[in-house]
Design a binder for these strands. Structure first.
Length: 815
DNA sequence: GACCTGCTGCGGGTTG
């Protein structure tokens, strides 16, 4: 038994688990590894003990025998959140104090003051707790290699969270450098359970690693309950708010000590908060709200109050998904579909955050059909179905940033760094030629920008590429990182009248002439100019594009599988779960009006209403895929018959709506849904170029092509003119093989259109038997999709103002 | 007849 741990555990009155001993042993024998264990079982301590043991030469460490002293950085702990860094810092401070260790642990994030940073440079602590971005910032300073030379351990916390994003690429690249500086570096990762844990390990530790995978053999106890409405008849067929079940949620809150109420959107959180306070004024002061639009102060106040057990409940969004552990929380409520199994589990795990305590989660459906997800979630959890995290590959934007980082720091030797980079998972396939292209872009702007001196950034000095301009170096440090916030576009009439702002990601998907809803008006897009969308009022009925949203919020493929599984039970009448029994009347209705699809069937409904001619299709593939499938279908249809469609979709299916009748039969549907020539039809049927252009903005920002401006300062530089859109056009015209340009298109196909998933969906559908019905009225399946297209969109002004009043209320609390 | 969808995360500073 690890002697330091012994002391600690003795003092705590704890019994160490098998996985902790396994971790210590692995670390003691000089191995790297990945640790997977449920939250609340002391993963963090397990790793710290191993690291500390290594630090003290004397294996039989006792207080009086501290003899290892150094001013060298010994361990680096990377977390994805500043708040998490602080949490780990606090815990380790306590530990150090308890054991009277001579081991200095410090924090280094964006919050760290300049003075502290300077001190850390001069006399490094033994351990540094930090973020991926801050590690890159250290790499971007002189003497970085020296600073990291004695580093023995690196821990990447919540690796599953980083891996699926470009921040994961930042970590991969930093590791490649640190490993090169010190080949004996031991890497440890901490990951929640995901579908591809082995892959996660391989990406972190590198190919041919001989690290261990420590899996705790502890099953966290989890209780899942669906909250049912009193009767199905009075429960809405559509909608996503769930406020009808307010009283039942309050009942749950009353039964537990502290409850987190998760909603899917910020506005939904606001609405729930208001409704609870209005209906139950006794909750004033005991109920709080937490999401990304609130100020840091409010959020910190809420977190602190949660810690201290002062709150009865907090209504929140994903902002409380991760990180800080709130011991008093012993119940979680999920309003609406959690959209993914991993996220559902993650949220459930926010409660009962102690060994052997049960996590309680209540699932609150917001419309009739959604009730079924209660059954699907239980099925998925019971069968250990969890999503994978898909790592980014070939993110040349991050590579360009990284190369600049090195050049700002100690300077880089191209062929050395090429070999290092090639060992990462992300750039496994990079060729010498591609790397040379990257270098060329940094040295003289590459093929198309060499005429501009601003893009001659790297200079070769004694075999090392360096950034010599202090201005450029400074600017680079400011823009380190891979998080790009969504741009807001100003919506304006031709006269110049300003209507409001809207996510650029939405506008970028429209073509001139498309009609959309905004702030309660129906508008036609005339043109997009820089960051302005010029529109005019429209009354046109057809061609309305209600939304091509959902870029990020579709249900996961795995939850989709679980939902399809639940549906298969309904038709076969094998479902024994409460959810399926409860929904019988609804499905009866569906069957009477149209039909219920089996697992190997695809239901298609053709319905004529006063609004037009609707074609409803139900593949159960998630909203994102449905949007794409619908576009392709509409495009293919348009080539056969002259019909204009508007499109709507939800998690279960999609709708093509036309003002004019069209003819349809089984054979035609089969043909329209053929998986053949899919790539071609996507490219032609969807405005891929515009999507790539929008994607390119992020890429250009990360790559350092466009400078985002000094924080808090107005950007005056002429670089503003050289915006991403311009680069995109230049590359399209003069450098079509540009790596960043190609990356933009790849990302569109991989992440936005999810071409792979779409292809699989088409493949699956093509093997299904098509059941075509002609119902007289809208069916329970059709109604939610139908209502989707008749909703006002983007009138989020009123919840913004609600937000303001709330802020005022909360601020009153501070006094 | 039923309908208020769209999250989160990070981030300057020594060559006087």
């Amino acid at each position: 038994m690890n002697p330091i741990a012994e002391v600690w555990f003795f003092n705590q009155g704890w019994q160490p688990h098998g996985f902790q001993k396994e971790t210590w042993k692995a670390i003691a024998t000089g191995r790297s590894g990945l640790l997977n264990a449920p939250t609340g079982f002391g993963k963090t301590f397990a790793l710290w003990f191993g690291i500390l043991q290594h630090y003290y030469e004397d294996k039989h460490f006792r207080r009086q025998q501290q003899k290892f002293k150094t001013t060298k950085l010994h361990a680096l702990w990377i977390t994805p959140l500043r708040a998490l860094s602080k949490e780990i810092y606090k815990a380790t401070q306590e530990l150090s104090a308890e054991l009277e260790l001579d081991y200095r642990i410090e924090l280094r994030t964006g919050d760290t003051t300049i003075a502290q940073r300077q001190k850390q440079r001069k006399s490094p602590p033994q351990a540094l707790i930090t973020t991926p971005e801050s590690v890159h910032l250290i790499l971007a300073s002189k003497g970085a290699a020296d600073y990291f030379k004695h580093l023995e351990f690196i821990v990447v916390d919540e690796w599953h969270e980083l891996m699926g994003s470009k921040r994961g690429v930042l970590v991969e690249l930093a590791l490649s450098r640190l490993k090169a500086i010190n080949p004996k570096l031991k890497i440890w990762g901490v990951s929640a359970t995901i579908g591809n844990l082995e892959e996660a390990q391989e990406i972190l530790l590198g190919k041919d690693h001989n690290g261990v995978l420590v899996r705790a053999q502890i099953q966290k106890k989890l209780s899942i309950e669906t909250v049912f409405p009193d009767n199905l008849e009075r429960f809405p067929w559509a909608g996503h708010l769930g406020i009808k079940l307010l009283d039942k949620v309050v009942d749950i809150v009353n039964r537990y000590g502290t409850t987190l109420i998760f909603t899917n959107t910020r506005s939904q959180a606001e609405i729930w908060y208001q409704h609870i306070i209005t209906a139950y004024p006794e909750f004033a002061g005991l109920l709080a709200i937490h999401h990304g639009s609130l100020s840091d102060e409010i959020r910190q106040w809420v977190e602190q109050a949660l810690h201290e057990g002062k709150l009865k409940a907090v209504v929140c969004t994903s902002s409380l998904d991760l990180g800080v552990d709130f011991r008093p929380v012993n119940c979680v409520v999920q309003i609406g579909s959690p959209k993914g199994i991993a996220r559902f589990l993650q949220r459930a795990g926010r409660s009962g955050h102690r060994p052997y305590e049960t996590s309680h989660i209540y699932y609150v459906p917001t419309n009739s059909l959604e009730i079924i997800e209660g059954d699907s979630l239980k099925y998925a959890v019971a069968h250990h179905i969890v999503e994978q995290r898909i790592p980014y590959i070939r993110s040349f934007d991050v590579l360009l940033q990284y190369l600049t980082t090195l050049a700002v720091g100690d300077g880089l030797e191209a062929h050395v760094v090429f070999e290092e980079v090639k060992k990462t998972h992300c750039f496994e396939s990079i060729t010498e030629d591609e790397f040379a292209q990257c270098m060329a872009m940094l040295v003289h702007g590459g093929k198309s920008l060499s005429a501009y001196p601003d893009f001659h950034r790297l200079v070769l000095v004694d075999g090392l590429y360096k950034v010599e301009s202090r201005k450029l170096a400074m600017r680079h440090r400011l823009s380190v990182g891979a998080i790009v916030s969504d741009l807001m576009m100003r919506v304006k009439f031709m006269s110049g009248k300003y209507l409001g702002s809207i996510e650029e990601s939405f506008i970028s998907r429209l073509k001139a002439g498309d009609v959309f809803w905004f702030s309660g008006r129906q508008l036609e897009l005339i043109q997009v100019r820089n960051i302005e969308a010029i529109v005019k009022p429209s009354t046109r009925r057809t061609g309305v594009v209600p939304s091509w949203m959902g870029g990020r919020f579709s249900i996961s493929p795995d939850l989709g599988i679980a939902i399809r599984h639940s549906f298969s039970h309904i038709r076969k009448r094998t479902g024994k779960s409460d959810e399926i029994k409860f929904l019988q009347p609804l499905f009866k209705e569906q069957e009477n009006r149209s039909g219920l699809p089996q697992e190997d069937e695809l239901l298609v409904e053709y319905i004529h209403t006063k609004y037009g001619y609707h074609l409803f299709v139900y593949p159960f593939e998630g909203k994102l895929v449905h949007e794409g499938v619908a576009q392709v279908l509409a495009y293919r249809f348009g080539k056969i018959q002259p019909v204009t469609f508007s499109i709507a979709s939800n998690e279960y299916g999609f709708e093509l709506l036309s003002a004019t009748p069209f003819s349809i039969d089984q054979a035609l549907i089969t043909e329209l849904l053929s998986p053949k020539h899919l790539h071609k039809d996507i490219t032609e049927g969807i405005n891929v170029q515009e999507m790539a252009r929008r994607r390119f903005r992020d890429i250009a920002g990360i790559a350092g092509l466009v400078f985002q401006g000094y924080p808090g300062k107005q950007m005056k530089s002429k670089h503003l003119q050289a915006n991403a859109g311009l680069f995109f056009s230049v590359f399209e015209d003069y450098d079509p093989h540009n790596l960043l340009l190609r990356q933009a298109y790849d990302e569109v196909f991989d992440f936005q259109l999810e071409e792979g998933r779409m292809q699989r969906a088409f493949d699956r559908i093509s093997s299904h038997r098509i059941v075509l019905t002609f119902p007289e009225k809208l069916t329970p399946f059709a109604f939610p999709i139908f209502s989707e297209s008749f909703r006002e969109r983007y009138s989020n002004e009123d919840w913004q103002s609600r937000l303001e009043t709330l802020k005022l209320q909360l601020e009153g609390k501070f006094e």
